[in-house]
Amino acid sequence: MRKLSDELLIESYFKATEMNLNRDFIELIENEIKRRSLGHIISV
């Protein structure tokens, strides 16, 4: 996760939620978004 750019991480989050991927996977992405202080972009 740390090698993904912020932009790609956010894009991955939206794609994963759109495709209804595994909730655990989405939570991993959400946690990384929060760690990077980007939660305001997706309202996490």
Rank of each mutant, 00 (worst) to 15 (best):
I10Y: 03
R36I: 01
S5F: 03
D6L: 07
E27C: 09
E30V: 15
R23L: 08
S37N: 13
D6R: 04
F14W: 13
E30Q: 08
E18I: 10
D6F: 06
L21Y: 11
L38I: 05
E30Y: 14
E11V: 11
L28W: 04
I41G: 03
R2E: 14
K15S: 08
R2F: 11
N31L: 14
M19W: 05
S43P: 11
K3I: 07
L9C: 01
E27T: 12
I33E: 00
K3T: 14
E27H: 10
L4A: 04
E30N: 05
I10S: 02
Y13F: 09
M1E: 02
E32T: 01
M19A: 09
M19S: 07
N20P: 05
N22A: 14
E7K: 13
N22G: 12
G39H: 12
L4D: 01
M1A: 04
E7H: 11
S5L: 04
R2I: 10
N20C: 08
S5I: 05
E11C: 15
N31F: 12
I10T: 03
K3V: 08
I26W: 04
F14H: 08
D24Q: 11
I26M: 06
E11R: 14
I29T: 01
K3R: 08
S12W: 15
N20H: 10
F14N: 06
D24Y: 11
L38K: 02
I41F: 12
I10P: 00
N31Q: 14
M19V: 05
F25L: 13
S37F: 13
M1I: 15
D24I: 11
F25N: 04
L8T: 10
S5V: 04
K15A: 10
I33A: 02
F14E: 04
R35S: 05
L4Q: 04
N31E: 12
L8C: 13
S37A: 11
L38M: 07
I29V: 05
E27L: 13
L4S: 03
I41T: 06
E11H: 12
F25G: 03
S5P: 08
E18H: 12
E7C: 09
N22F: 07
I29A: 02
N31T: 12
E27F: 10
Y13G: 00
R23M: 08
E18C: 14
L8I: 10
A16T: 03
L8Y: 08
I29H: 03
E32R: 01
D6E: 04
L38S: 01
E27S: 11
S5Y: 03
K34H: 11
K15R: 15
E32M: 02
E27Q: 12
K15L: 13
Y13K: 01
N31A: 14
I33V: 05
I29E: 00
S43M: 11
G39L: 13
N20Q: 11
I42V: 08
S12N: 07
D24W: 15
F14A: 05
S37R: 14
E18A: 15
K3M: 10
R23H: 10
L8Q: 15
I33R: 00
L38V: 02
A16Y: 07
A16N: 03
L9M: 02
I33G: 00
V44F: 13
G39R: 06
K34N: 10
R36K: 00
A16R: 06
L4N: 02
L21A: 12
E30G: 06
E32F: 03
N22E: 11
I29R: 00
L4T: 03
L9Q: 01
L9D: 01
I10W: 05
M1W: 10
D24K: 10
I42N: 04
L21C: 11
F25K: 05
I26C: 02
E7M: 11
N31S: 11
R35C: 03
R23T: 07
R2T: 14
S43Q: 13
D24C: 10
L21S: 09
L8D: 15
V44R: 12
M19Y: 07
S37K: 14
E27G: 07
R36H: 01
K15G: 05
R2Y: 12
L8H: 10
H40L: 07
R2H: 13
K15Y: 14
K3Q: 14
H40I: 07
E30I: 15
K15T: 08
S37P: 02
I26Q: 03
F25W: 14
L4M: 14
E30M: 15
L8E: 15
E30P: 00
N22M: 08
E18D: 07
M19Q: 09
L8G: 08
R23A: 10
I26A: 03
R23Y: 08
N22T: 10
I26P: 00
I42S: 04
I42D: 03
I10F: 05
I26Y: 03
H40K: 06
V44Y: 09
R36F: 02
V44Q: 14
L28V: 10
E11W: 15
E11Y: 15
S5G: 05
I10G: 01
S12I: 15
A16C: 06
M19P: 02
L28P: 04
M1P: 04
L8N: 09
N22V: 06
I41V: 11
V44D: 13
M19C: 09
N20Y: 07
G39M: 14
I33C: 03
I26E: 01
R23F: 07
N20K: 10
S37H: 13
I41D: 03
L9Y: 01
L4C: 07
I26S: 02
E18T: 07
S43N: 13
L28G: 04
N20I: 05
N31K: 11
L4V: 05
E30L: 15
F14P: 00
L28M: 13
K34V: 08
E7G: 07
L9S: 00
K15E: 06
M19K: 06
K34F: 14
R2P: 04
L9I: 04
R2W: 13
I29P: 00
L38W: 02
E32I: 02
T17L: 13
A16P: 01
R23C: 05
D6H: 04
K15I: 11
G39I: 10
M1T: 04
I33Q: 00
I42G: 04
L9W: 01
M19G: 07
I26L: 08
M1C: 12
I41A: 11
E11F: 14
E18S: 13
R36T: 00
V44I: 12
N20W: 07
E11D: 09
R35F: 07
S37Q: 12
L28Q: 09
